[in-house]
Design a protein around this nucleic acid. Structure first.
Length: 562
RNA sequence: GCGCCCAUAGCUCAGUUGGAUAGAGCAACGGCCUUCUAAGCCGUGUGUCGGGAGUUCGAAUCUCUCUGGGCGCACCA
């Protein structure tokens, strides 16, 4: 039962405004005591030439109130109180019958959506900053998929570019033994050393560029070193992706496009967009009020803009995408605006379907994380610290728990992922071990705990059977929970609309809070009224279904006990 | 200098697209485990919504301006 459209229809009958417009005006009152839905009459005052509260009063008297407990006016607001029994039974039965597909829809059927995310740079450590793109991208991938879209997860590996020239130049300092044991750390060490040395001797930068040019020209020595670096890096990255349970449909990174860039240059040339400037080939973007987009450097080598253009064109041809989403830090906003503008100038109207989903940076209280300087926290260390803190919490709170290690892993990692997804993605995260790994309050473990409590109650009720009487779920707390559970699809759609997983994180916090409140206040197993007990059990079951569903969309596992 | 983003309680953040008395978590203090797991629940209070002006029935939300921060601005990604 969709009460919002019901209300819109009834109001539309009385005033001369289309149902759709009425629906947009309907709001949810700030406090549940004020009703479940509200219709403000301020805007009608002008056309009807009457005082808004008078309009509200007249509507109240003339409107059909069937299906509602009552309809009230407060000032210019017309407040609707829905029939709790009807809403509870329809919501709970829908959840139970749809199970894990509750919240899904097929609005995206037949549409391909690309989500590019994670995209770490080969040869560099996978640090705490990379989790922003990885967690947000993975969540968006799952959230969008839930609405029937055919979604493609692409890891656009940073495996090409001048940095490899620098790395190859730095290879003369490599310690083979260390490279064997801890490849990324050793590669990082020589990369850092390169930048230190380059400060004293700027000619090293030129040497790096030379090596990249040779790599791009297919020279054997550079190519084999590059392959070696890529192999050891991917091995390390896959270990992290396994811990996070993140999977990709494609690992086509920057090098994948190395043979597709000549065509980009040709296309831009044909359209007459290329101009030469200081020896480089650029696309002028003055009309967009942006600096030019560099297509070829003065030494003839390509640059990341060229590769991103090639990638976008390739993706359009291969996947014919409906949306092409880039989950990349906000520090690259200008770059993407330049790419999209260049595509547009080249006559590709689908440039408008490309979206840069930006996020803030992870930084220390005082300084920015800098790979070049080597001050960096490995993501693996953060995840392991999370796991070991979860392990300690288990020993303290529930030492007889089975599968301790499995639970510690899911709770520890869940806490980290949830922290990354809790807030508006454009906010910077100030790195603090205790904040990121908190288990109290609005955190991942709090949600997981709520789920485990629900499952525990259900486990104790096996064998019970009774016909639920949903009319008896009439307490404020029970009804609040029901209303929240009914709002899952809206929350998902809103999250997709804004490319914002935190909308779902906030939603599930609200659900868990309402659920905790409910079971702390009312007996379930020991409830004597059979109809009410059955209804409460169904409510608990519905809640566990919704929590599990939302956490899975966020890329977080649930545990049955903790 | 130019462009984009941000400023809400001591701290970290929400705020349903312009609506009713601006809310959570953390931290602090007090209460609740012989009754469904205390990673929980209940209670106690704090705000010039950065300042100013404007738009209108109505602004934390929209416009302008100032202040204070972040990021970016051609051969790195």
């Amino acid at each position: 039962m969709d009460f919002k459209t019901l209300i819109s229809n009834r109001i539309s009958e009385k005033v001369n405004i289309p149902v759709k417009d009425i629906e947009k005006m309907i709001e949810i009152p700030p406090k549940p005591e004020m009703g479940d839905f509200a219709f403000p009459c301020f805007q009608l005052a002008k056309t009807m030439r009457k005082a808004p509260n008078l309009i509200a009063q007249e509507l109240k008297n003339s409107i059909d109130s069937q299906g509602f407990e009552k309809i009230e006016t407060v000032g210019a607001y017309l407040n609707f109180f829905v029939d709790k029994g009807i809403l509870s039974s329809s919501t709970i039965e829908k959840i139970l019958s749809e199970g894990k597909s509750y919240g899904n829809s097929n609005i995206g059927e037949g549409k391909n959506v690309i989500v590019e995310f994670s995209s770490p740079n080969i040869a560099k450590p996978f640090h705490v900053g990379h989790l922003c793109s990885t967690a947000i991208g993975n969540a968006l991938y799952k959230i969008i998929s839930s609405q029937g879209y055919n979604t493609i997860a692409i890891n656009h590996l940073g495996d090409w570019g001048t940095q490899f020239g620098k790395l190859i130049a730095a290879f003369k300092w490599v310690d083979e033994e260390a490279l064997e044991k801890e490849p990324i750390k050793e590669l990082l060490r020589i990369y850092v050393k390169f930048h230190e040395e380059a400060e004293k001797d700027p000619s090293l930068e030129d040497l790096g560029r030379l090596h990249f040019k040779r790599l791009e020209d297919g020279c054997e020595e550079e190519t084999s070193l590059w392959q070696k670096i890529k192999d050891v890096s991917l091995k390390e990255f896959n270990r992290i992706y396994d811990m996070l349970n993140v999977k990709f449909d494609s690992f086509a990174g920057e090098s994948f496009y190395s043979d597709k860039m000549d065509e980009v240059v040709e296309i831009l040339e044909d359209k007459g967009l290329l101009t030469e400037s200081k020896g480089a080939l650029v696309v002028n973007l003055d009309e967009y009020n942006m600096p030019p987009c560099i297509i070829k450097k003065s030494d003839g080598a390509t640059i990341y803009a060229t590769r991103d253009l090639a990638a976008a064109i390739y993706r359009k041809r291969t996947y014919d995408f409906y949306k092409n989403i880039y989950v990349v830090g906000s520090d690259q906003s200008l770059h993407f605006r330049q790419i999209f503008a260049t595509l547009k100038l080249a006559g590709f109207d689908w440039a408008d379907d490309c979206v840069h989903v930006a996020f803030g940076l992870v930084k220390f209280a005082d300084k920015k994380l800098s790979t070049r300087k080597g001050d960096v926290i490995f993501l693996e260390d953060l995840l392991n610290e999370g796991i070991s803190r979860a392990r300690a919490a288990i020993e303290e709170k529930n030492p007889s728990l089975e599968n301790k290690e499995d639970v510690a892993k899911k709770v520890g990692i869940g806490a980290v992922i949830f922290t990354y997804l809790k807030n508006n993605r454009e906010r910077d995260i100030v790195f603090n071990w205790d904040d990121i790994l908190s288990f109290d309050g609005e955190t991942g473990p709090y949600i997981q705990y709520s789920y485990a409590r629900g499952r525990s109650i259900l486990g104790k009720a096996t064998g019970f059977s009774g016909t639920p009487d949903y009319n008896k779920l009439n307490s404020k707390e029970e009804f609040e929970l029901v209303k929240l559970l009914g709002g899952l699809n809206d929350a998902i759609l809103s999250a997709i609309d804004k490319y914002e997983p935190s909308i779902l994180s906030r939603y599930i916090i609200d659900v868990a809070k309402a659920f905790n409140k409910f079971y702390n206040l009312y007996p379930i197993i020991s409830c004597e009224d059979v109809g009410l007990k059955a209804a409460r059990l169904k409510l608990v079951e519905s809640t566990t279904i919704v929590i599990k569903k939302v956490l899975s969309l966020l890329g977080i596992d649930v545990v049955e006990k903790m």
